[in-house]
Write a protein that binds this DNA or RNA. Structure first.
Ligand code: MN
Ligand code: MN
Ligand code: ZN
Ligand code: ZN
Lengths: 144, 144
DNA sequence: ATTGTAGTTGAGATTAAATTGCAATTAGGA
DNA sequence: TCCTAATTGCAATTTAATCTCAACTACAAT
């Protein structure tokens, strides 16, 4: 059973990089969010131990190591998502309350592959984000 | 036959805003790109007449007026696309040469609507970007 | 366990995109 | 033509993100 730490350690080793306490804390904290987070949220929790610069540097390594992914930007800030051990998914974003709904639609994924074939394009990653109003906010808009 | 200027003028009027020479030039120049562009490219062409601040302010109005759209960010810069009179489409982005390929896949659009229904979600806009290697870059990667 | 060294850290400086304050200017309705 | 709220350019400011560098440390070789 390979753990996130195993994966990060082996990524670092493969590049001659070191597994430091800071990197360990950031990985754990990112996991703790189990969802979407940004540098500020992480820094808030780690400010006593770790500098912003190190957080930025480590997030970049976690992305390269395949443990987290950069998602859509929120309020001009980069936003991340823990992906280790999770399946790929896309997002619905409520522009009223900020709710994020994750969805998975294999037919869309398949069709994307077809599109790529059509253009001789080799896909590496993709991002589909749909902005709008969630169920609750849709209702309150119709009422109000 | 409604022109882009008509549309912009009526948006501005509806908000009590003015159609200035600067706004007119920026609209025309944005149209001239007929594709994806950023503030720098626009400023490069208009620097003699128009300040950066005005460009930023006007682009924001053009977005609200439905004449252009903010697309994915490129190299940490906001990127825009002229949309007046064009059909919606999504993008393939080559991470090697920077090429942008536009595509339209109605089946994907339909499926997105289904996903939204499933969650009671009211979609307003969406963005699908697929990053990878274009045909030429795929070939050169296999060779080299 | 000790040592050597290449990688890492935090603090602050720096970069660069984007926004803002303000005095001078102007669009456009009355 | 006049009036005034909107607009502009400029410079200052904000802010996410990166960089510099001296002190520190992980970790592999001894
Ligand atoms: Mn998610
Ligand atoms: Mn396009
Ligand atoms: Zn909502
Ligand atoms: Zn290419």
């Amino acid at each position: 059973m390979i753990t996130p730490e195993d994966k990060f350690r082996s990524y670092l080793k493969s590049r001659g990089l070191k597994f430091t306490p800071q990197r360990s804390f950031i990985l754990k904290e990112a996991f703790f969010f189990q969802g979407h987070f940004n540098v500020d949220q992480l820094y808030e929790k780690l400010r006593k131990r770790i500098s912003r610069a190190t957080i930025y540097r480590t997030l970049s390594l976690l992305v390269k190591g395949g443990l987290i992914e950069e998602t859509f930007r929120c309020q001009d800030k980069g936003s991340y998502e823990y992906i280790f051990g999770r399946k790929h998914h896309d997002h619905l974003l409520c522009i009223k309350c900020g709710k994020i709904i994750e969805f998975r639609e294999d037919k869309i994924e398949k069709l994307q592959e077809e599109v790529c074939k059509r253009y001789g394009f080799t896909p590496i990653e993709h991002r589909l984000g749909i902005k709008g109003y969630c169920e609750e906010c849709s209702k309150s808009l119709k009422k109000g």
